[in-house]
Amino acid sequence: MWLIDSSIGRKLIMSITGVFLVLFLLFHSCMNIVVIISPASYNAICEFLGANWYALAGTMLLGAGFIVHILYALFLSYQNYRARGGQAYAVTKNQESVTWTSQNMLILGVIVFGFLALHMYNFWYKMQFAELTGLHTGDFHPADGAAYVKQLFSQPVYCVLYLVWLSALWLHLTHGIWSAMQSTGLNNKVWLPRIKAIANVVSTIIILMFMSIPVYYLLGCGSCC
């Protein structure tokens, strides 16, 4: 099967799952921003995405996307490690045009994944999971997302952790988005700088939307309203 056997096929899978995850993040960030504007509306969305078949199917698909993206990343990295040969260079230097990010996508991915586990515990475990299983895992009603958000980000340590996480995600996205375009062949000499710019803009918008929430609560805006 060429999607497994060929290097470009494997990169296609990385790109498709990557783009899918970017779309998810875009949706997720748009949804999150609502909590600042109107906690009640946010809770309505949480309610809507509770223990329903469509939300569940979406979650499964999302999970699958993550798993495939991660497995392929590990597979590719292992192959690339092998392709470098047994002996490493004693001295290596990068040209300016080569970003640190592009060479450390796996590390960034691992960081993102590590925080993801925390994030799942902080929210998903207490919300959708609680709803599904009927177990009461959090302090509030599973659909009261706004309360959970406020509770978590009233603790500065979580704010900082989330900001670090989002920074890593931002780096991962800046390379990931244009790289997906390149790997699927949607690129040429003229569009190369444009696509890179688009990637930077999209990833920055996503991350700023995400970041605005902890910052909002950190600054104490949530409690005074």
């Binding site: 990169k11 590719l76 990068n94 080569v98 970003t99 592009s102 390379h175 390149q182």
Partner: peptide, 11 residues
Amino acid sequence: GNCTNTGACEA
């Protein structure tokens, strides 16, 4: 190996 679009080749 597999290309990960670092651009080191071009540079």
